[in-house]
């Protein structure tokens, strides 16, 4: 197992995703002799996981069962330990395409946060690219570096614990793309430019507030970035449902001379409801994650 390469079988030391249900999954570090508690009972790693095929059904001690899935950046995003607010797959997918990421891309990122985007970047730029990620907070930088090791992607990434606004990304002239998710992205724009290849590349800044976007767009323009474009993307989930719509009874069009007890003789209505397949949205949905501002650094 690695986050950039599929395996067929679960091995000691892997990180696997235990799927309990659609909205209940958890990551598990597979260790000979270890156990994991779930609401369906205990999973014994040695007998229940190691050597089994990814995707297998595992019966827990209480008789309930789960599926053990191969980790992907997308499953990681919905199961990772939150040390900060994180980017979700809808934004990540857009960022990945709009930054022109592909195998071999060199990317700079700040802040690393909980590493949600980092894993998706690493998946896309492997096996020949590199990620330089800068995290202001020391504990978080250490935690994410440890995760990269466990996920066997540490050869593709350099974690730096510094203030990107003051100290930049620690590299110059190497990046094809830069991603900013920090409170004052406009302060890091010049560092983004420095980090990028002379030939040019793409930059993205994620900000929740429009004022941040305004300042960032101004800074990008001031530093000669082009094709500055701000967008927002929202996911809409459609829950598939079968619903039953009762049919109204408009009565008979015969004269109404029936006696009270005649009602018993009325034929039963033919249909009383129609069944349809439809979708419904969840009652509340995320209405905003952040604005994504993209720009192109021209040749300099």
């Amino acid at each position: 197992m690695s986050f950039v390469e599929y395996s067929d079988f679960i091995q000691d030391g892997d990180v696997a995703i235990v799927y309990l249900s659609h909205d209940n999954m958890m990551p598990v570090k597979v260790q000979q002799g270890a156990q994991t508690q779930t609401r369906y009972g205990v999973i014994r790693h040695s007998t229940d996981l190691i050597g089994k095929r990814y995707g297998s059904k595992v019966t827990c001690s209480k008789g309930g069962w789960v599926h053990v899935l191969h980790p992907t950046p997308e499953l990681w995003t919905v199961t990772l330990p939150h040390r900060t607010q994180i980017l979700y797959t809808t934004d990540i997918a857009t960022i990945t395409m709009m930054l022109d990421l592909k195998p071999g891309s060199v990317v700079c990122e700040s802040g690393t946060g909980s590493g949600s985007l980092s894993h998706a970047i690493l998946r896309t730029i492997a096996p020949t690219g590199h990620l330089h990620t800068v995290e202001f907070h020391q504990k978080r930088a250490e935690a994410v570096a440890e995760e990269f090791k466990e996920h066997r992607v540490d050869h593709l990434v350099t974690v730096r614990n510094q203030d990107v606004c003051k100290d930049g990304f620690g590299v110059a002239g190497v990046a094809d793309a830069v991603f900013l998710d920090i409170p004052s992205p406009w302060e890091a724009v010049r560092h983004a430019k420095t980090a990028m290849k002379k030939h040019g590349g793409r930059v993205c800044s994620f900000s929740p507030c429009i004022e941040q976007v305004q300042k960032t767009c101004e800074a990008l323009a001031d530093h000669g970035f082009e094709e500055i474009n701000t967008l927002e993307i929202l996911l809409r989930v459609h829950d598939v449902r079968t619903v039953s719509l009762p049919l109204p009874d408009f009565g008979s069009d015969a004269p109404s001379e029936k006696q009270p007890d005649s009602s018993e003789k009325l034929p039963a209505p033919k249909h009383t409801a129609a069944t349809i397949k439809t979708t419904t949205p969840p009652r509340e949905i995320p209405g905003h994650t952040g604005y994504l501002t993209f720009a192109t650094k021209p040749r300099t």
Binding site: P208, C209, I210, E211, Q212, R236, T280, P281, P282, R283, E284, I285, P286, G287, H288, G290, Y291
Partner: peptide, 20 residues
């Protein structure tokens, strides 16, 4: 339908919205 939070330096659409 989208509601907004309008506050100095903190203006953005409300983080939760009605699904439909």
């Amino acid at each position: 339908l989208r509601h907004y939070q309008v506050l100095p330096n903190r203006t953005h659409p409300v983080l939760l919205m009605s699904g439909g």
